[in-house]
């Protein structure tokens, strides 16, 4: 059997909000080390990769590896009922046909039980090569979300350029052009809620990406105050948000190239 209890149920809620618009159905692959999920969007342009380590749960039991296939939209509707301080327990039988989600309020005064039908999803896992990225930008997640939203007014593609001085996001369209530059900056009083902008630069990068997908990724903003954007010329970028201190959610996006 599989059973896992997550004291911070709102993490699961935020995860579902972050992926439900990008991926319809996905397998939660459960093993003794934790839960992982890997899924591409239907057009094979982006990929989401989630990791929740077993040690982040206050109870975790997985007798044998199982894949629990779920419709993420249906799951997100159920998980939206999780109260912010609720604990969530996920359970499944050994074949993953039926999945139970149980939400418990902090004082134990309310318990709700939900059952979802498991789906048989045929998905291949892609081998993601480990890459030493040329530029790694860490910045406030809310700022990244805002930049994606603001530049979408002008165009559908953003050129992200990193230099020693900072990072720029530029877009152009029929209406005109827009460019937002961020300089490296220190965090304000080491306040985790006001992170600065930092760039680890092996080599400058300039690469084009579809704003539509980046905007989907920013649905993960409530998960964490910071986001890390890793890039090398000519390969997919990675946008990573930590999931508490138990793992991460990574979004990969294939670049746009000159015709």
């Amino acid at each position: 059997m599989f059973e896992a209890r997550l004291p911070q149920g709102d993490l699961l809620k935020k995860i579902l909000e972050a992926v439900k618009d990008l991926v319809t159905d996905a397998n939660f692959d459960c093993s003794s080390t934790g839960i992982s999920l890997q899924a591409m969007d239907s057009s094979h342009v982006s990929l989401v990769s989630l990791l929740m380590r077993a040690d982040g749960f206050d109870h975790f039991r997985c007798d044998r590896n199982i894949s629990i296939g779920l419709n993420l939209l249906a799951m997100s509707k159920v998980v939206r009922c999780v109260g912010n301080n609720d604990a969530v327990t996920m359970k499944a039988d050994d074949n993953g046909d039926l999945v139970t989600l149980m939400f418990e309020s902090q004082d134990g005064s309310k318990v709700s039980d939900w059952q979802l039908r498991g789906l048989d999803i045929d998905s291949e896992r892609l081998g993601i090569p480990s890459t030493d990225y040329s530029s790694v930008v860490t910045m406030p997640s809310a700022e990244f979300a805002r930049i994606c939203r603001d530049l979408s007014v002008i165009g559908d593609t953003v050129v992200i350029t990193t230099t020693k001085e900072g990072v720029t996001f530029a877009s152009k369209g029929e209406l005109g052009t827009g460019k937002i530059a961020l300089r490296q900056s220190a965090a304000i009083d080491d306040d985790a809620d006001s992170p600065g902008v930092s760039i680890e630069l092996q080599e400058p990068v300039s690469q084009s990406f579809a704003l539509r997908y980046l905007s989907f990724f920013t649905k993960a903003t409530p998960l964490a105050p910071t986001v890390t954007i890793s890039m090398s010329n000519g390969v997919p970028l990675v946008v990573e948000y930590p999931v508490g201190d138990m793992g991460h959610i990574r979004f990969y996006l294939a670049p746009k190239v000159e015709d």
């Binding site: 591409m40 057009s43 342009v45 892609l126 993601i128 090569p129 294939a254 190239v257 000159e258």
Partner: peptide, 14 residues
């Protein structure tokens, strides 16, 4: 504007 590439061409099947 450029053309969109796909992940299949970067990430191999294991």
């Amino acid at each position: 504007k450029g053309s969109q590439t796909h992940l299949d061409s970067f990430f191999g099947r294991p």
